[in-house]
């Protein structure tokens, strides 16, 4: 058999398991097209809500070199679904497999965004229940199993397009939230969003981020992501596809997520560099090399192996 990177996530098929994570390189059709052309399997837009938001004051994104990570408090800056629709339409015209990340402060807002975009042939909608940088919605929803169930169930009734639920690690029991999302009828679970974090400058004697508090992504959170994906796979097995995200900087990290139980991965922080095309190429080469060495013909053969 010929080795193939083709990846299945429920009803969604992508050419490989690498998907651009929401929030990085996702603000315009042009950068999303570019990232697909760089070789990713699919791309996810920046989270889109009902109306335009400026996000939080700057600084809202900066690197933490010591731990190869990034802290951000962008705060869901977006133009609103009515305006962003134009960018999505261009992506689809270009045949770029697109997943739209959506958020809302409550069920009604999620409904409105979904209703406004559901006629578009996107691969999936990713429900952002886990942004730590907002007062309402975000983690407030993602830490409440009843709300998660209610919103997923409601959106499920309104569309047959795949619904992915992005989980926050900032909970005491991720299984409880995940189970609520599965019960509501989602098609995949995405773990994890950023970890609550903060940086204080000792000379300025104040938090650096304009919003003071933020979310951490990058290499520092990879072991956390692996643990959550492992826990989710342990609980759900093949019942629901998992998408691993958090701190992927090397092809080996992708393999690690697959072994932990992921069917695919999302990559963000490590692509936020001058030459993201090179990163994608390195990842792809490494995955193929590993599959050849280990004599795997498909990505699905790797999924969950660490549990056997």
């Amino acid at each position: 058999m010929i080795m193939s990177l083709t990846t299945k996530i429920g009803d969604v098929t992508t050419r490989n398991p690498m998907i651009l994570a929401s929030g990085v390189l996702g603000t315009t059709y042009s950068i999303l097209n570019r990232m697909y052309e760089a070789g990713l399997g699919a791309v996810i837009t920046k989270s889109i809500g009902v109306k335009s938001r400026n996000g939080h004051p700057n600084p809202s994104v900066f690197a933490l070199n010591e731990i190869r990570s990034v802290i951000n408090s962008v705060g869901l800056a977006n133009p609103g679904y009515q305006i962003f629709r134009e960018d999505i339409e261009i992506l689809l015209k270009n045949s770029t497999p697109t997943i739209v990340s959506i958020f809302g402060e409550n069920k009604e807002e999620f409904q409105e965004v979904l209703e406004g975009l559901k006629d578009l042939p996107v691969l999936a909608f990713e429900l952002n229940f886990s942004c730590p940088n907002t007062e309402k919605g975000g983690t407030q929803i993602g830490t409440d199993p009843d709300l998660v169930y209610e919103i997923v169930k409601d959106l499920r009734e309104k569309t047959s397009t795949s619904l992915w639920v992005k989980l926050t690690p900032n909970v005491s029991d991720i299984i409880e939230i995940a189970a609520a999302a599965v019960k509501g009828g989602c098609d995949a679970l995405v773990a994890i969003n950023t970890l609550k974090a903060m940086v204080i400058d000792i000379h300025a004697k104040q938090p650096i981020l304009g919003y003071k508090k933020g979310g951490l992504s990058g290499a520092a959170i990879k072991p956390v992501g692996i643990r959550y994906v492992y826990d989710l796979y342990e609980h759900f097995g093949n019942k629901i596809p998992l998408i691993g995200v958090g701190g992927i900087f090397r092809g080996e990290d992708i393999i690690e997520y697959l072994l932990a139980g992921a069917s695919a991965v999302e990559i963000g922080t490590s692509l936020g560099v001058a030459y993201p095309e090179n990163m994608v190429r390195f990842f792809q080469t490494k995955i193929k090399k590993y599959m050849k060495e280990q004599q795997y013909d498909s990505i699905s053969e790797i999924t969950g192996r660490a549990h056997k």
Binding site: V24, I31, N33, R34, S60, V61, G272, V273, P276
Partner: peptide, 23 residues
Amino acid sequence: MRCGFGACSSCTVDPTGWRICVD
């Protein structure tokens, strides 16, 4: 520009997808 190092893509130009901060 928001991040300055190519992550947020706020400064992307169309249709090339070049980011002003790094490209």
